[in-house]
Computed example of a mutant assay.
Amino acid sequence: MHKTSDPAYATASIVVRDLHKDFKLRHTHSIKETVVAAVRRKPLTTDFHALDGISFTVNPGEAVALLGFNGSGKSTTLKMISGVLRPDSGKVLTRGRIAGLIEVGAGFHPDLSGRENIFLNAAILGMSRKETEARFDEIVAFSEIEQFIDTEVKHYSSGMFLRLAFSVAIHTEVDILLIDEILSVGDEPFQAKCLARIRELHKAGKTLVVVSHDLDMVSGLCERGILLQGGKVAFDGDSKEAVARMRV
């Protein structure tokens, strides 16, 4: 699923082809509500079409913004590319190592120290112990929490947790970086620092796919915008035009 075996896309970083994904929305949240709904013959669930046949290709080194209002399917698409979700039908093909900044720190264990969690989270993101050891000091320095690195992360503030988790993710050796709204949290200086690091990665030739409601940020960072509406691709082209369409 995550290798570009199709010769037609041998040089692409990401191929999304005719993706479909439905979710069931529950209308009851307790046994009592379920029984009442059943007696009244009301539907217990309805299908929500999150993705309805979207297709696009991302070339190596591109920075692409996935845009759309809430419920348009952009975060679902990002999770499909990362492998967190599987499509009901269609294909996702990727080339190279992926790091997904989708749920920052999802692989952190609260009872382990920051030091231990660096190695754990880096391993989840595909780094070897040797690679992590080589980048350890850089990861800690970027996070700016050196004095707390041997403290269990359950004692960290949300800001400290974010700093360490983000620092691990952006220091992994990746070809594709997926980013979902994580720059909307944390203080302003740290956001600026993270954005500068992401720009460095893009200049180094990494492929970026970004989901954010910060339209000014994504139009400055990404040259291409894919606008999703109702689980379909409504526009695919220059990021500034995609943003303009969002603002109409």
Rank of each mutant, 00 (worst) to 15 (best):
E133Y: 00
E33A: 14
G61L: 08
D52H: 10
N117I: 07
P60D: 09
I145S: 10
E146Y: 03
G83S: 06
T77W: 01
L112I: 04
G53L: 06
H109L: 10
S128E: 05
I145E: 09
D111E: 15
F23W: 08
V92P: 01
G105A: 04
S55Q: 06
V104C: 05
D111A: 13
V140E: 00
S157C: 11
S72Y: 03
N117T: 09
L120R: 01
S128W: 08
F136H: 11
A38T: 15
L112N: 05
L51R: 04
K21L: 14
L125P: 02
F69R: 15
H109R: 10
R97C: 07
E62Y: 10
T77D: 06
E138T: 12
T34K: 14
E103A: 05
F148R: 01
F48T: 05
G96T: 10
A38G: 13
F136R: 09
L120W: 03
E152K: 15
K42L: 13
V16I: 15
F136G: 06
G105Y: 04
V153N: 00
R115I: 04
D22F: 09
D88T: 00
R97E: 13
G107F: 03
E62L: 10
G114C: 07
I118R: 01
R97A: 14
K74E: 05
G126R: 02
S55C: 06
I124N: 08
L78C: 04
A63N: 07
H155W: 12
T151Y: 02
R97Q: 15
G96I: 11
S55D: 04
A37C: 05
F23R: 07
G100Y: 05
F136W: 12
R86A: 03
R86M: 04
P60N: 10
E146K: 10
I31C: 07
A141V: 09
G105H: 00
D22Q: 13
K154R: 15
H29P: 03
I124T: 09
S55W: 01
G114H: 05
I81Q: 00
T34I: 12
A37Q: 10
P43R: 12
A38K: 15
T45Q: 14
D88L: 00
M80C: 07
K42D: 10
F108T: 12
F142H: 09
H109A: 13
T76I: 00
L19E: 12
H49T: 06
V140I: 09
F148V: 02
A106Q: 12
F136C: 10
A65P: 07
E133D: 06
